[in-house]
Simulated scan of single mutants.
Amino acid sequence: MTHERILVTGGTGMTGRRVSHRLAERGVDVRVGSRSGAPPFEWHDPATWDAVLDGVDGVYLCFHPDLAFPGAAEAVSAFAARAAGRGATRMVLLSGRGEEGARRAEEAVRAAFADLTVLRCAMFAQNFSEYILVDAVRAGTVALPVPDVPEPFVDLADVAEAAARALTEDGHAGRLYEMTGPRSLTFAEAGALMGEAAGHPVSYLTVTPADFVAESVRAGMPAEVAEGLTELFTEILDGRNAEPTDGVERALGRPAGDFADYVARAASEGAWS
Results as ranks from 00 to 15, higher is better:
residue 2 T to E: 05
residue 4 E to W: 08
residue 16 G to D: 06
residue 25 E to H: 07
residue 30 V to F: 04
residue 30 V to I: 08
residue 33 G to R: 06
residue 33 G to E: 06
residue 35 R to M: 05
residue 35 R to T: 01
residue 37 G to L: 01
residue 38 A to F: 12
residue 40 P to L: 10
residue 44 H to I: 00
residue 44 H to Y: 12
residue 46 P to L: 04
residue 48 T to P: 09
residue 49 W to Y: 11
residue 51 A to H: 02
residue 61 L to A: 01
residue 62 C to T: 15
residue 64 H to N: 14
residue 66 D to L: 14
residue 66 D to C: 08
residue 70 P to D: 11
residue 73 A to Y: 00
residue 73 A to K: 01
residue 74 E to R: 11
residue 78 A to Q: 06
residue 86 R to E: 12
residue 86 R to K: 08
residue 90 R to N: 01
residue 92 V to A: 06
residue 93 L to A: 02
residue 96 G to H: 14
residue 99 E to P: 03
residue 100 E to Q: 14
residue 100 E to C: 05
residue 102 A to C: 12
residue 103 R to W: 10
residue 104 R to S: 11
residue 108 A to S: 09
residue 109 V to K: 00
residue 110 R to D: 04
residue 111 A to P: 01
residue 113 F to E: 09
residue 113 F to M: 02
residue 113 F to K: 02
residue 114 A to M: 09
residue 114 A to E: 15
residue 117 T to Q: 11
residue 122 A to T: 02
residue 123 M to N: 10
residue 124 F to L: 06
residue 128 F to R: 03
residue 130 E to Y: 14
residue 131 Y to W: 15
residue 134 V to G: 11
residue 134 V to E: 10
residue 136 A to V: 09
residue 136 A to E: 15
residue 138 R to C: 08
residue 143 A to P: 00
residue 144 L to K: 04
residue 144 L to V: 11
residue 147 P to Q: 08
residue 147 P to M: 11
residue 147 P to G: 06
residue 148 D to Y: 13
residue 152 P to S: 07
residue 155 D to P: 08
residue 158 D to V: 00
residue 165 R to K: 13
residue 169 E to S: 05
residue 173 A to I: 14
residue 174 G to V: 12
residue 175 R to Q: 15
residue 177 Y to L: 12
residue 178 E to A: 13
residue 180 T to R: 11
residue 180 T to M: 05
residue 181 G to C: 10
residue 183 R to K: 13
residue 184 S to P: 00
residue 186 T to K: 03
residue 188 A to N: 06
residue 189 E to L: 12
residue 190 A to V: 04
residue 191 G to P: 08
residue 193 L to F: 08
residue 196 E to P: 15
residue 206 T to Y: 13
residue 213 V to I: 06
residue 219 A to F: 13
residue 221 M to Q: 15
residue 222 P to H: 09
residue 223 A to H: 11
residue 225 V to W: 15
residue 225 V to M: 15
residue 226 A to Y: 10
residue 230 T to P: 02
residue 234 T to K: 14
residue 236 I to S: 06
residue 237 L to P: 13
residue 239 G to W: 13
residue 241 N to C: 12
residue 242 A to E: 14
residue 245 T to Y: 02
residue 247 G to K: 02
residue 248 V to T: 00
residue 250 R to Q: 15
residue 251 A to F: 09
residue 253 G to T: 12
residue 255 P to A: 05
residue 256 A to H: 06
residue 256 A to E: 04
residue 258 D to F: 06
residue 259 F to H: 03
residue 261 D to N: 02
residue 261 D to T: 15
residue 262 Y to D: 01
residue 264 A to L: 11
residue 271 A to H: 09
residue 273 S to T: 14
